[in-house]
Structure formats: C-alpha cells, structure tokens
C-alpha cells in the first residue's frame, strides 16, 4: 500500500515547494507537451537534466521518484513491448515465424519508454512538491475561462480535492481493516486468484461501509456550514503571484523552450 507514490505530497519548504501552484502546473503541462515534440535522445537528456535540477532544488529524495516509477513499471514494459513488435520497419534485427523485431521498432520502444519515464517523473515533481489543495486551487484557476461554456470549474476542483483527500483516508482505512482481519487469521497472500479475490471480501465490505458513512457525514458537515460552492467564495490561502513566481515562470518557460530546441534542432 505504502509503495504508491504517484500523487503523493512530500512536505518541505524549498523554492519549488513555495512556488505558485499555477506556475508549477503550467510549467508541467508545457514540459509534457514539449516531450511529445522531442524526438531524439539529446532532447531527452536535456529533459532529464531539467528534472534532476528541479528535484535537487526541491530537496525531495530521489528514492521517492524511483519508487513512483516502480509502480508503473508494467505499463512501461507493456508500452515498450508493443512498440518493439508492432512497429513496421525495414532493418530486421531478429525474426521468429511471424514475430519481427526491427531497428525502427527498438528505437521507437526506447524513445517511448524514455518519454514515459520523463513524463511520470516530471509530473511527480509537481505532485510531490504541491499539496493537493494548492493543486486543485490551481486547476480551478486554470479552468476558469471555461466558465463561459458553463463548465463548473469550482465544483470540479472541489470534487478533485475531496477525491484526493479521500485517497489517503481510504488507504489508511484499508490498512487498518486488513490488520484487523489479519488479527483474525485472514490470509491475503497465499492461494490462487479466486481465493485471493475472496479473501478481499472481509476488507471491501467494511471499507465501503465506512466510505459511504464518511461521505454522508461530510455532506452533512458541509451543508451545516452552508456550503454552496462557486460564486464569491474566498480562499483560506489566496493565490498571489510574487516577483519570484514571475521570475520562476520565465525560467521554466525558457528551459522548456531550450529542451524543445535541443530536441528538434540538434
């Protein structure tokens, strides 16, 4: 349970932590978009250098990023395998009956995997250094223009905040329930697939029960405080761009452009 580090927040007070969440969010989006235009390895190296620099500045242990990667290793391998076998090409490296591995396929798989790694670590830097509340505030802000099209930006952001805070709570709860059942001799580890699935019933029932109960309580608590979303709500922590934030925004944009230039031109 504890191994899931994607979306986890690592509290700290580094420059990156203090940076305005909107700048970080936009920067990450820019970086991810840029990755899709970069097609050569020098571009990826530039991207990697960029991420390493950010992580250094944020003082988040590298271990956490690696752990985050570990939990998506299957997706990575799957994407790489698909590319190895399904990319058409001339230069056959290896073939066995209908399977053909081409140089193009291998290079495609390599690029795809690197791109995914950079993408995941890049977004991890964002979530590791930004508290979920700040992050959803930033998302709400960036969704604001869509209000013209009647997109309920605030409601979406609120739902995301609640969902994110529930993840931590549910994981916590799952752990406690598993312990309570393990204390009664429940075994979650041995046995075949069906037995394992069955062994989860004593965990799922209490988990759903408490999730629904909590949702009910939360709704009641929000209503009794006259929550009504949207218009005219002020924030506990107003988002304010400072001089540092503007400078950081320029640096971030500059670095992404640099990565793009390296990736496309060199």
């Amino acid at each position: 349970m504890k191994r899931i580090t994607i979306g986890q927040f690592y509290p700290g007070d580094s420059v990156i932590h203090k940076l305005d969440a909107r700048v970080k969010l936009l920067g990450t989006l820019l970086f991810i978009t840029a990755l899709f235009f970069v097609g050569n390895f020098s571009g990826y190296i530039a991207g990697a250098v960029f991420i390493v620099a950010l992580v250094q500045m944020s003082r988040v242990p590298f271990k956490l990023l690696i752990k985050g990667l570990r939990s998506v290793i299957f997706i990575l391998l799957f994407a790489a395998f698909l590319n190895i076998f399904l990319t058409p090409g001339e230069d056959v490296v290896f073939s066995f009956s209908f399977i053909r591995v081409t140089r193009e396929g291998l290079s495609m798989a390599g690029r795809m995997a690197t791109r995914l790694v950079l993408l995941i670590t890049g977004s991890s830097v964002l979530t590791l250094t930004t508290s979920p509340i700040r992050l959803t505030d930033a998302i709400e802000y960036l969704l604001m223009p869509l209000k013209i099209f009647k997109v309920p930006a605030h409601e979406i952001a609120m739902m995301m905040t609640i969902a994110m805070s529930s993840i931590a709570m549910l994981m916590d709860e799952t752990e406690k329930i598993m312990k309570a059942q393990a204390a009664r001799g429940a075994d979650f580890e041995t046995g075949g697939l069906i037995k394992k699935a069955k062994s989860l019933i004593p965990v799922m029932v209490p988990l759903f029960y408490s999730a629904f109960r909590r949702a009910d309580e939360m709704a009641a608590a929000m209503e009794s405080r006259c929550y009504r979303g949207g218009e005219n709500r002020t924030r506990l922590k107003p988002m304010k761009m400072t001089g540092n934030d503007y400078i950081a925004a320029v640096i971030l944009a500059g670095s992404v452009i640099l990565i793009l230039m390296v990736g496309i031109l060199i």
Partner: peptide
Amino acid sequence: FQYPEHQLFD
C-alpha cells in the same frame, strides 16, 4: 482493534 467497523463484515 478500537473500531468494530473495521472488522465486522459478514
């Protein structure tokens, strides 16, 4: 454990 809700399921 403290909370019976964590273990009652059947």
